[in-house]
């Protein structure tokens, strides 16, 4: 789900940074409020978990792979803003050190995987937590699916707006293709995100750290 450099137009990149920067600033403030001796190692470990889990490329029918993100687990335990900032930090390190995800796409990748994934997961969990014990699973499943839809949308609008005589300049495939692909893949990968979220929630529950 990491958009590389060159796949999105400079306009898309600039707009996504303009949206992300104030959100990062507010989110960072929220993170600082939540950080204390007790939460620090947990938030750091969950972020590390997010990093490592993204290295597990799971084969999906259609000749591709995808991975869980771990955003929803952080969102449920520490709130969506902390999830957004934490996943952004992970994505920044992935982009700079490992070339996974573009620098120009860092903002949109953060908005999709961190912000949208975190917020959707958080609110789905809030709605369902008193109704079913599988609320974390469902939250994880829908959270990553929402992230995938955002990525599919951003990729799919590229040829619509940025073509030269019918030749796409950036990502070439149309919206229908990208949405079907991203949704299709993450209908399966959602299970991985769901299981991960449920496990982390169970650990937190058993240790009495839930707020």
């Amino acid at each position: 789900m990491h958009i590389p450099d060159g796949y999105i137009s400079p306009t898309t990149a600039v707009v996504s940074y303009l949206v992300a920067i104030p959100l990062w600033m507010y989110g960072f403030k929220k993170l600082k409020e939540k950080l204390n001796e007790e939460t620090l190692p947990i938030i750091a470990a969950l972020s590390a978990l997010s990093f490592v889990i993204m290295m597990f490329n799971i084969p999906v029918p259609g000749g591709t792979t995808a991975h869980a993100v771990g955003a929803v687990a952080i969102a449920i335990l520490f709130g969506p803003w902390v999830a957004f900032v934490s996943v952004s930090l992970v994505l920044l390190i992935q982009a700079v050190v490992f070339g996974d995800g573009g620098i120009s796409a860092f903002a949109i990748n953060s908005l999709a995987m961190g912000f949208v994934g975190g917020f959707v997961g958080y609110y789905v969990f809030s709605l369902l937590k008193d109704k079913t014990k599988y609320a974390p699973f469902i939250a994880g499943y829908l959270g990553i699916l929402a992230s995938a839809i955002v990525i599919g949308f951003v990729l799919g609008i590229q040829p619509l707006f940025w073509s030269d005589n019918g030749k796409p300049l950036y990502f070439p495939f149309d919206l229908k293709t990208t949405l079907i692909a991203m949704i299709g893949v993450h209908l399966i990968i959602g299970i991985a995100e769901g299981i991960l979220t449920q496990i982390v929630y169970k650990i937190a529950e058993s240790k009495g750290v839930l707020v």
Binding site: M1, H2, I3, P4, Y7, P41, I42, A45, L46, A48, L49, V52, I53, M55, F56, N57, I58, P59, V60, G62, G63, T64, T65, A66, H67, I151, L155, F171, T178, A181, M182, V185, I199, V200, I203, A204, K207, V209
Partner: peptide, 30 residues
């Protein structure tokens, strides 16, 4: 909780070569 999480992350790190099993790239990361 941090101890359990550290162990969890540690196990995942040990297993991380499993992530290399498929040569296929992610969709849209070609």
């Amino acid at each position: 909780m941090k101890r359990v999480l550290f162990i969890f992350v540690g196990i995942l790190i040990l297993l991380v070569p499993l992530g290399l099993l498929s040569e296929n790239p992610a969709w849209g990361e070609w």
